[in-house]
Write a protein that binds this DNA or RNA. Structure first.
Lengths: 197, 197
DNA sequence: TCACAATTCGAACAAGCGTTCGAACTCATG
DNA sequence: CATGAGTTCGAACGCTTGTTCGAATTGTGA
């Protein structure tokens, strides 16, 4: 890896951390300079500006999530198992990349039109991927319910950044199992039991 | 209601809307002046500053949610029904107060220390309320699982602001029913079925 | 050692921000 | 009409922000 790429990678990693801690808008380029060990002006040799930095963090992270999910679900053929694999991958990836995923989840609307569209295109593919899995798992469910259920699941998984403590007593695998149990058990299996309630 | 209180209420309502649309940090006092029909300086007669405005929006909204939830669960005695009532109230309130609830969910960390603590105190009570309900509903569940499940549920419910369209085909009651079905069905009833998976 | 490209950065700039201040206006009351 | 408290706001201030620029420094191949 060329020194240039290493420096850029380093900058992106530190930026993700600071964005996650202070929020994108509250983070100044001077904060990022301090966190990366570069000078204020020096960062502009690697990146066009503050927003380009956020876009790079988001695009790279999202691309990894998408690719990882596709690979994770490929291992199973049973519809329920594929959904479980999707959940397990998303949650463990989230826990292993807390800063980047928080930036992805919480700063989704901090990009301006052009860059926003580019990230949204990846997001669309990712959402479509899950909705396809849900169609296979619960084909008799109304379309509106399936769509809402997909977002409910994303809610459970993406909300993690608001409370999850990696040093706490529940590890990522256990958390993934819990969320998978809630979702699959409640959405695919508890139809007649509770629905009418 | 005195004219003063009406003007303040008006300002808070408009501010919540703009905060929800553009995000707190991207909103300028000039934006709020334009949205409220007041002048830039005029707003300072009603409010100490921008952050005080955010704090007021959050505190008032959160107090209403908490009070409403306490009232909603009081109507039932069965543990499962109480959890369902909590969910139904939270989701329908969220849908009926989208702007305020988005500001509450998305700008939770936009307040500085003092005001942050004040809002967090209300949040603590609200989270405790749900955790108490879960204890009654699933007393044999490990404590760590119950805690994580509470946050998973909040994730499903609070994520709403990222995707829910009030003009869409799924109305708040139906959405509340779906989320309640997923959570209760998956957490309280699908223990042995899926867990080992 | 030289020349040239790659990289770094101190210093400054223009723009936008939240906030303040004092004067002006409104209006019920005597 | 006169008074004074309640309310409004134009104009300005001081500060922070993202970004730029040109010079200085470092690295590299001949």
């Amino acid at each position: 890896m060329r020194p240039y790429d290493e420096r850029l990678e380093h900058l992106l990693a530190r930026a993700a951390k600071v964005f996650a801690e202070k929020g994108y808008h509250s983070t100044t380029m001077r904060d990022l300079a301090a966190a990366s060990g570069m000078s204020l002006a020096g960062m502009y040799y690697y990146v066009r500006g503050k927003e380009a930095l956020l876009a790079l963090v988001q695009e790279r992270c999202f691309a990894r999530v998408l690719a990882g999910a596709e690979q994770a679900i490929a291992a199973a053929t049973d519809p329920v198992e594929r959904v479980q694999a999707f959940i397990r991958h998303h949650v463990t990836f989230f826990a292993a990349n807390l800063a980047e995923m928080k930036v992805l989840s919480h700063e989704a609307n901090s990009l301006t039109a052009e860059r926003h569209r580019k990230v949204n295109a990846i997001k669309r593919r990712y959402v479509d991927l899950l909705e396809g899995l849900l169609r296979d798992m619960a084909s008799d469910e109304p379309r509106a319910e399936r769509g809402a259920a997909a977002y409910a699941l994303f809610g459970m998984m993406n909300w993690i950044y608001n409370w999850y403590d990696p040093a706490g007593e529940i590890d990522p695998d256990r958390l993934a199992g819990l969320i998978a149990r809630i979702f699959v058990g409640g959405f695919a299996e508890a139809r007649s039991t509770v629905q009418g309630g």
